[in-house]
Design a protein around this nucleic acid. Structure first.
Length: 861
RNA sequence: GGGCGGAUAGCUCAGCCGGUUAGAGCAUCGGCUUUACAAGCCGGGGGUCGCAGGUUCGAACCCUGCUCCGCCUACCA
């Protein structure tokens, strides 16, 4: 089906209709489908190739798409550049999209959107709203990613609330319980008074606040006045000890004394600990039930009394007496006033101090004590650090963040959340003695609130036959930390009994052998959560790392350099940019920053992307429409198609063609090296430079006038050039394809596919570097031609001649005989490039680049 | 407090395992429209490479210290 009449090739690239059409083409032709070994091969000729799998542990974004902006488009595009490259390198790509919809982010989003909170609505109603928003979110995401050209296999989609994920998550819990890596403990935990749930350390951000350090007068049992500094006078009622440094001679005599607490009048012991800074305040420190992590630490180490004064609601309880019922802030205000009345506040000092806040709602967290499930972390830090160093980090410096985080963790991972929308614990408790009953794998996924234990009918401890469900849900990271397990169907989820998707072609009940996965792309702010927790799970379940490579993207910034965020309002909507400039142009912008670097949004850069598209279109159109410039010569047949062009040899071509092939090889090699090291930005730059400077500005300029020549004697030269252009333009489009998937596909489908076999340029094989095409002598010679061309352009500017004005004669001269020889050999090219009807070697040429010019030209018009 | 990243033309950035007059795009100025592209082409101007030292024949690049910006991390109550 070799078709050669391309004169009607469209003059303009209509990206709006083309991108839509192509996205549909990809979808309906399964271009990005993972070739699963279990799949019947009837729908295409692909068989499963498990030796070359490149699997991606895609970040499951939380599903409320209301926060999406071009920064997200940026980071997903950046990962996708690498993925498209790997696909063309021949890898069988496993690229799923997941949605992390269970958990607090979605709950908070629903609370805000419907102006409700979890105490004003039933659990079921709440979950229904969350599921509804989840559904909307997924479809919005999908629409945007498809418009952006993100090449995921949508049949691999999962949602962290679906049955498969619930089963995976619960199986993980059960297995860790069996390995004694998860246990229930009743101890102080970090608590968000606003979300009314316990949290893990990773959910806490530390923020600087302006506070006041109060110097409060206490008295010892022997009547001595003692000044103690604290930022939290509202916790006086919860004070359980006073601490001093053991080597602080000022206080050693207090060893056996009791200290009387102002207002509350109870007494507490004096304790000594190295950690107390003698120079801070008066060197005395008040320890309460639990004002901060330090209090918890001392409480644990020194087995202090417990005097809980803050309730989960964030209000003080009856222990606070006059301040009962007040929230922390009001209680502080009132107690300070009261202390002032009795003159016990001796000094106030403004203080910048760090307070832990819940990173989902910015509320200052407190400590409360209730039973929670914990995954052991602290005992195995060394293993996690070790795992981190077995992963390849791109960029490498991001690993520091992981190491520092792991080293600094202070708490085991609390996975209990007193919320509604999440994966339930597969756990019941004996209604009499509280002994937990853990579900078994064959009853998963299970909702303990809706069913009874399958394998246990009487409590093994007390013989009771009644069980109550665990009402907490698991931390959302408990599930998202399992993405490699979800992707590989580690839980052997049976899709046949849970049909919840119209497309199950890739969903087999068997486990897929893709662990450790090849690549984890993600954002830097979730190193301590998603990345760390995934490592934890993988080490615990498999003893191995969860993925071999991780790439960490930077942030999308607004024009002024601030991190873009929907809630701050400084965002740009990707849909609008795509509409205005095309998805390829947006992706072009996303490729401007190398991995890990922040990138400012710049509409100008997106516009530059669109310029590149237009120029690409026209450059290729020039080639295509000139195929017909070859006149009726019967024996002439241009050779097209990768198979035949691989034999292309510079010996059969003009020097200029040979030079172009040579330059392309260099570009290809560099481009490939950049891709291999995840430096996609440099990869795009080098291809663009080649396209603009070498292909358009020089090669096409030299060659284009040859195509106006009607004389049949130019046929050979035209054929050489056409073949060269086929090879170079097609392969160049392949290098552009990871960045600009739409226009490269459109050009492929409308032209190259006539001579090629693949359904899509994205399935075409990446160009193979051919060292034998490197031609340094052509490069040296063409440099002379380019010098003449450069002079011609400058001279035209000097003479106010337009670049296409045809001159009668061009005179060229050089005192260097070798140069003149090269000039003679290039006379056709010089005439073409310089728009001259004739070329004369003559000393009449007097225009040089100045200084030590070796070559001169002049015109005669 | 500790650490990481960045500071190069008006703007956004490349160059940084030392080596001829430091590059690109945008912006700016001048010129150019019949024959791929005016969402274009050609040409020009514009930088003592954050500051201060040091190593070297030679530093944007290596070393030391400092300043500013961003981020991560941290128990000074």
């Amino acid at each position: 089906m070799q078709k050669t009449n391309f004169t009607d090739f469209p003059k303009n690239y209509d990206y709006k209709s083309a991108e839509k059409k192509i996205a549909e083409y990809w979808e309906s032709n399964n271009i990005y489908k993972f070739k699963n070994e279990n799949k019947e091969c009837s729908d295409d000729n692909s068989s499963g190739d498990f030796s070359h799998i490149f699997s991606i542990d895609t970040p499951p974004p939380y599903v409320s798409s209301a926060h999406l902006h071009v920064g997200h488009a940026m980071s997903y595009s950046q990962a996708e550049f690498i993925i498209r490259y790997k696909r063309m390198k021949g890898f069988n790509i496993f690229y799923p999209m997941g949605f992390d919809d269970n958990g607090l982010p979605t709950e908070r989003y629903v609370e805000k959107k419907y102006k409700i909170n979890k105490s004003k609505i039933t659990r079921d109603e709440f979950i229904d709203l969350c599921l509804k928003e989840t559904k909307i979110g997924i479809s919005t995401y999908k629409e945007l990613w498809q418009a952006l050209g993100i090449s995921v296999d949508w049949s691999l989609t999962y949602s962290t609330i679906d049955a498969k994920c619930r089963k995976t998550s619960q199986k993980s819990f059960i297995e860790l319980y069996g390995k004694k890596l998860v246990e229930r403990r009743d101890e102080p935990i970090i608590w968000c008074p606003s979300c009314r749930t316990s949290l893990a350390q990773a959910d806490i951000a530390i923020e600087e606040f302006d506070g006041i350090l109060f110097d409060i007068e206490f008295s010892s049992s022997s009547g001595e006045k003692l000044i103690i500094s604290t930022t939290r006078p509202e916790l006086l009622g919860a004070c359980v000890a006073i601490y001093a440094n053991p080597s602080d001679s000022r206080y050693s005599h207090l060893k056996d004394e009791l200290i009387r607490i102002p207002i509350y009048e109870h007494t507490v012991p004096v304790k000594f600990d190295e950690s107390v800074e003698m120079n801070y305040g008066t060197g005395l420190m008040m320890v309460c039930t639990w004002g901060d992590a330090e209090d918890v630490k001392k409480w644990k180490e020194h087995k202090l009394d417990t005097a809980i004064i803050i309730e989960p609601s964030g209000r003080l309880n009856e222990k606070a007496r006059a301040y009962a019922g007040l929230n922390v802030k009001d209680a502080k205000k009132n107690i300070v006033e009261d202390l002032k009345k009795i003159s016990l506040i001796k000094n106030e000092k403004k203080l910048r101090h760090n307070v832990g806040i819940h990173d989902r709602c910015s509320t200052a967290v407190e400590f409360v004590q209730t039973p929670q499930w914990f995954i052991t972390i602290l005992n195995n830090k060394a293993q996690f650090i070790d795992a981190g160093s077995k992963i390849n980090w791109y960029p490498a410096f991001m690993k520091t963040r992981y190491d520092e985080w792991v080293q600094n963790i202070k708490w085991d991972w609390n996975i209990s959340r007193q919320r509604f929308y999440g994966v339930p614990f597969p756990v019941w408790y004996c209604s009499k003695c509280g002994e937990p009953v853990i579900a078994e794998e064959d009853e998963l996924p299970v909702d303990p609130a809706a069913s009874k234990p399958k394998h246990v009918s009487i409590c093994r401890v007390c013989g009771n036959n009644e069980f109550i469900p665990e009402n907490d849900v698991m931390d959302t990271w408990m599930t998202s930390s399992l993405t490699p397990f979800i992707n590989s169907n580690w839980a052997n989820f049976d899709f046949d009994s849970h049909v919840n998707s119209s497309d199950n072609t890739n969903r087999k009940n068997k486990e897929i052998k893709i662990m450790p996965m090849t690549l984890r792309p993600q954002a830097q702010e979730i190193i301590r959560t998603w990345l760390f927790y995934t490592v934890v799970k993988s080490i615990y379940h498999t003893g191995d790392i969860p993925f071999k490579n991780v790439m960490i993207s930077g942030w999308g910034l607004d024009k002024s350099g601030k991190k873009m965020s929907k809630s701050l309002g400084n965002f740009v909507a990707p849909e609008e940019i795509i509409e205005k400039y095309s998805a390829d142009a947006l992706r072009y912008w996303a490729a401007k920053a190398n991995l890990g670097q922040d990138l400012r949004f710049s509409e100008e850069d997106v516009a530059n992307g669109r310029r590149l598209l237009i120029k690409l279109w026209n450059a290729v159109r020039f080639f295509i429409t000139n195929i017909n410039s070859i006149k009726s010569n019967e024996d002439f047949k241009p050779i097209f198609g990768t198979a035949s062009l691989d034999k292309l040899n510079s010996a059969d071509l003009s020097v200029v063609d040979g030079w172009l092939l040579s330059e392309f090889q260099k570009t290809l090699k560099a481009c490939e090296e950049y891709f291999e090291s995840y430096e996609y930005s440099s990869a795009l730059r080098i291809v663009s430079d080649f396209f603009y400077n070498i292909y358009c500005d020089n090669y096409l300029e030299i060659v284009k006038n040859i195509f106006w020549e009607e004389d049949a004697s130019f046929n050979d030269r035209k054929v050489q050039s056409l073949n060269t252009m086929y090879y170079v333009s097609f392969n160049m489009l392949k290098l552009f394809a990871p960045f600009l998937p739409f226009i490269t596909e459109e050009l492929y489908l409308s032209f190259y596919k006539n001579f090629e076999t693949e359904e899509s340029i994205h399935q075409c094989v990446w160009p193979v570097y051919r060292h034998e095409l490197i031609n340094e002598s052509a490069a040296k010679d063409v440099a002379v031609l380019l010098a003449v061309l450069d002079l011609s352009r400058k001279l035209r500017t000097n003479l106010n001649l337009h670049q296409n004005h045809k001159v009668k004669k061009i005179y060229v001269y050089s005192p260097d005989a070798q140069l003149m020889e090269i000039v003679r050999n290039f006379s056709t090219d010089i005439m073409s490039a310089c728009r001259a009807e004739d070329i004369i070697i003559s000393e009449k040429a007097d225009f040089g680049a100045g200084g030590d010019s070796k070559i001169y030209i002049s015109f005669e018009s």
